[in-house]
Design a protein around this nucleic acid. Structure first.
Lengths: 227, 227
DNA sequence: GGCACCCGCATTTTCGAAAATCCTCTGCTC
DNA sequence: GAGCAGAGGATTTTCGAAAATGCGGGTGCC
């Protein structure tokens, strides 16, 4: 994740700042992005800001309109369903390959990542946002490691991009109370099946895991008519 | 394909020019890209050239090294196999969905694209390169239309990117004589099965089609030790 | 002799302003 | 009143130079 590797260029900083602003909601879906504001936000000149926007556009976080600048990519149920469907396909296959090729080192990293994640609370309201941020990172690590042994860099990269792209939607789902889901349990089950080398059921569990998150967000959309 | 939509900005032109230079081999894999040269090639200042490189890097055609500039992404057997494997997964599923959802308009466009393509010769040595370029475009259209009814914009976009990314390798395979393959026939078979709504066999034929191209290029690599 | 440091050159990266483009509002014509 | 042309302003895009960074050679020190 480019966010964490601290950038050695201003353009990298700008990318991180704007990316975070979009994910946090400071810059809202559909909002037009003016260079003047972004320069103020990032504290730099137009060149690195523009470079950041070009990169964000390539990754689907912003959209560009020639000579009319950039705006934050809008959210939609259609995109959510598309992202989830594609993730089920890609990560499902990546997990299957990981289970096929993974060695004991992979198993160890998986166990470790899950352990760290399970030690953090997820949705306590009194939880400081820093901790919630931390949970997000661990959660991302867990899913990353799950597919890390698939031996296909392209697949990994695509899954990573979709994961980040799904993040804006995932943040909405957290605000849904009483989901009657035990997310921790779902993760545990996926891991157990993976370690058992039960590819079929592990893939099915992973797909179900994503579908449930999608369903939760979709319900939220429909009730709030947030779109 | 961004190449064909004539760009309304210089950065778009630069993207097209450099992209073409990489695909044609004018800029070779691994070669370092200096701004001075690229500015001369594109006939413009540094800003749009840099923007083009950022975009190309996001798509995997170039790689960037902070404060040390850009270079053309190297070719490798590993990457070729990775691209082909991922394409089989993605386009296989996209074709399955297209067959499921495609209407008669889709069938018509598919027939038309195949007809136009079949009227162009592919590998005549005396063929002017403009015509070969034309065949490439029609070939791309055919594959694009094949999956165009899958109703997943993300899947389509990913397939498009992989298609373009595979192009550098595909150009190598054309230089292999006597492939004992009837590419025209393969395309015909895929189309016939798709129109027949025989998803299973159509997907299998498509995957085989890609695997054969991969095999041809791999043999070329190994004999020439071009890597 | 070998190693570390510093300086100058080549190159990338960033800046601030100029040029180009788009949007809006006004005024004119039909 | 509707519609088009054009000026003015806002904004993006591009330029050319300045700043920052990395690389290689040379010098001094151990």
């Amino acid at each position: 994740m480019k966010d964490r590797a601290e950038a050695r260029t201003l353009a990298g900083d700008a990318y991180a700042v704007i990316h975070r602003a979009i994910r946090s909601g400071l810059l809202q879906p559909g909002q037009r992005l003016r260079f003047a504001e972004l320069q103020a936000l990032c504290g730099m000149s137009v060149s690195p800001v523009r470079e950041a926007l070009v990169r964000l556009t390539a990754e689907g976080f912003t959209v560009s309109d020639d000579h009319r600048g950039f705006s934050v990519a809008p959210l939609s149920i259609a995109e959510l369903l598309d992202i989830v469907g594609t993730r089920k396909l890609l990560e499902g296959e990546a997990l299957r390959l990981s289970i096929e090729h993974g060695d004991s080192d992979w198993e160890g990293r998986l166990l470790a990542a899950h352990h760290v994640m399970s030690r953090l609370p997820r949705e306590r309201d009194d939880m400081p946002s820093a901790m919630r941020e931390d949970w997000d990172l661990r959660h991302a690590d867990f899913h990353r490691i799950l597919i890390s042994a698939c031996r296909s860099p392209i697949l990994i990269e695509m899954c990573e991009k979709l994961f980040v792209r799904a993040d804006r939607y995932r943040r909405l789902s957290i605000s849904v109370p009483n989901q009657s889901r035990d997310v921790v349990c779902e993760h545990e089950r996926i891991m157990a099946l993976a370690l058992d080398r039960n590819a079929e059921e592990a893939v099915a569990a992973l797909k179900q895991h994503y579908q449930r998150t999608a369903d939760a967000v979709q319900r939220l959309f429909e009730t709030q008519e947030a779109l």
